[in-house]
Simulated scan of single mutants.
Amino acid sequence: MAMAAGGKEEGEPMMDMNMTPLIDVLLVLLIMFILTIPIQTHAVKLDLPQNSNTNTPPPIDPVKNKIIVTPTNQILWNGSPISLGILKQYLDQTQVMNPIPELHLQPDPQARYELVDQVLAVTKKAEVEKMGFVGNEAYATF
């Protein structure tokens, strides 16, 4: 006394489509689509000078300004603490000088990346041309 579900006779072929392979193919296509999406990066585009053997290095300018980003979230301009707004004003003043002084940026290895990124954004907005990173030996791994 077995009860047949749906009123179908026993032994009759099933006429429903098997959805499992279709779902598997769709999942594989979805994963492939996700992998082909480009990774979004948030970076500050800053044109730095390129080393080339044909160009001779410019003469060393006697006026150099140094920005230090400390681990205590301070920005130092030639040793004096300043804010991002004052940094923008200083950079704007240096860009109208003749000759344009060099700018040395020295972030501490323990400094917050967000603050260093904000300093780089300010230098880009001020269109600083002569800029270099100093103290990179602190990041070297031996």
Rank of each mutant, 00 (worst) to 15 (best):
P21G: 08
Q106H: 04
Y90C: 06
P38F: 04
L87W: 06
P21L: 05
Q110P: 01
L76E: 05
S83C: 09
E137S: 07
D117T: 12
L46Y: 04
E10G: 05
K125P: 00
K130T: 03
I23L: 12
L22E: 11
W77I: 03
E102L: 06
G135K: 05
E127Y: 12
E114C: 12
N136C: 11
G11H: 07
R112G: 07
I75Y: 01
L91S: 01
G11K: 03
Q93S: 10
P101Q: 02
D24H: 05
L103C: 07
I67F: 11
P81W: 02
P58D: 11
V122P: 00
A2H: 10
A138Q: 15
I67L: 00
G11L: 01
D24A: 05
E137G: 01
M14D: 15
L105V: 09
F133W: 06
V128L: 09
F33V: 00
I67C: 00
G11M: 06
T54H: 13
L46C: 13
E9S: 09
N98Y: 08
I68C: 06
D47A: 15
T56Y: 10
N65Y: 04
I37L: 11
V116Q: 07
G79W: 08
I37E: 04
T72L: 13
I39Q: 13
Q40V: 14
M3W: 15
H42D: 14
Q89F: 14
T123E: 07
S83M: 10
I34P: 02
L35Q: 13
D108V: 03
V128I: 11
P62Y: 09
N136H: 09
E127H: 11
G6M: 01
T141N: 11
M32N: 12
H104C: 03
V134P: 00
K124M: 04
M97I: 02
N98V: 05
I37K: 15
V69N: 02
V119F: 01
A43I: 03
P49Q: 08
P101K: 07
V25L: 07
N65D: 08
K45S: 11
Q50E: 15
M32L: 14
F133I: 06
P58N: 07
D24Y: 07
I34H: 07
P59E: 07
P59L: 11
G85V: 15
V63Q: 13
V119A: 02
F33T: 11
T70C: 00
V128R: 00
W77F: 14
D61T: 15
Q118Y: 04
L103G: 00
N98D: 14
N78F: 04
Y90V: 03
N18M: 06
L76D: 01
V122W: 02
L91M: 06
S83F: 04
P71S: 02
N98H: 12
D108M: 05
P38W: 03
E12M: 09
P101S: 09
M15E: 10
L46Q: 02
S52P: 01
L26Q: 09
K64P: 00
Y90M: 05
G79E: 06
